[in-house]
Design a protein around this nucleic acid. Structure first.
Lengths: 151, 151
DNA sequence: TTTATATCTTATAAAAATACTCGGGATTTG
DNA sequence: CAAATCCCGAGTATTTTTATAAGATATAAA
């Protein structure tokens, strides 16, 4: 329940991979797929949507690949998820986009629960950017080397 | 994405319906299904799980039906959702129950995101009980009659 | 200019999950 | 006994997910 599909998970992984290679020129899909353990063909479909949404830029041809469409601190996880999985919506009646109209909506008590769930998910996803993830990764890495040092 | 299935939605509706009839003796599945606009046979399957989990009690035979297994303020929406949709888990690696082991878990930055999503969903669902919903419903109803009065 | 490297597009499809549907059996009340 | 109700398991249609595949297009480098 309330489960992310592989689209969202793979997409975030791929975007984070791109963020880790910012400033190194275009990154090929093949290398991302290999590092992240994702089918290249499948990832192709996902990144196509990300490109159309402007979250990544593509450079075709040999030595081509993908680049982030904006600075890592300007790309929220929520942006990625919405492109790949659609609007955040635990139920259709509280979808962020074009919620399904229900005649009982005004008096519906369950509806208010789903609204709270939707907002709490959106808050989390919109509070984290690729830059946040990079910082977390750096922190984990430095803790790891500190630990290695003491062995 | 991150969508509730009908199981969770119907289940919460049915449980709320039972809460609204507390103290009136057993409520038949048929009447719940009619009021909530749910297939009776389908609801039967769902309530079977709720019964096994102790969230409802059943009384068989003519004039039989279902009763809440505990006081409305002792039944959290999260309890209902977990029975019908399984543990809260935006991804398998951060499932509330038996999370899938991943060798990279310690260093995985995406994982921490899904943990935050999971916790925010659980917090919302566990902060709302059937009693909360009854209070909300009463509030809506009183506002509604006030409005009617002024017309 | 040719070749290798990539992205881009569309079509197909297997597998899994979802949402029911159906039939009949067990239990209790009147 | 008959009607009302819960109980249980099997079957099924639809949708979603998760790919796989083939080939077209674009570019850099040799």
């Amino acid at each position: 329940m309330v489960k992310l599909s592989t689209k969202g998970r793979y997409g975030v992984k791929a975007m984070f991979d791109l963020a880790q290679h910012v400033g190194e020129g275009p990154t090929s899909l093949k290398s991302i797929a290999e590092r992240q353990g994702i089918s290249e063909h499948y990832l192709e479909q996902l990144i196509s949507g990300l490109r159309k949404a402007g979250l990544v830029k593509s450079i075709r041809g040999a030595q081509g690949g993908y680049l982030l469409g904006r600075e890592p601190d300007k790309i929220r996880i929520g942006d990625i998820i919405r492109v790949l999985e659609g609007p955040i919506a635990p139920t259709d009646c509280v979808s962020e986009e074009a919620p399904e109209i229900c005649s009982k909506a005004e008096f519906c008590v369950t509806r208010t629960i789903w609204e709270k769930v939707r907002d709490s998910i959106a808050d989390v996803l919109d509070s984290i950017t690729l830059e946040t993830m990079l910082e977390d990764a750096r922190k984990i890495e430095s803790e790891r080397s500190l630990y290695m040092y003491y062995i």
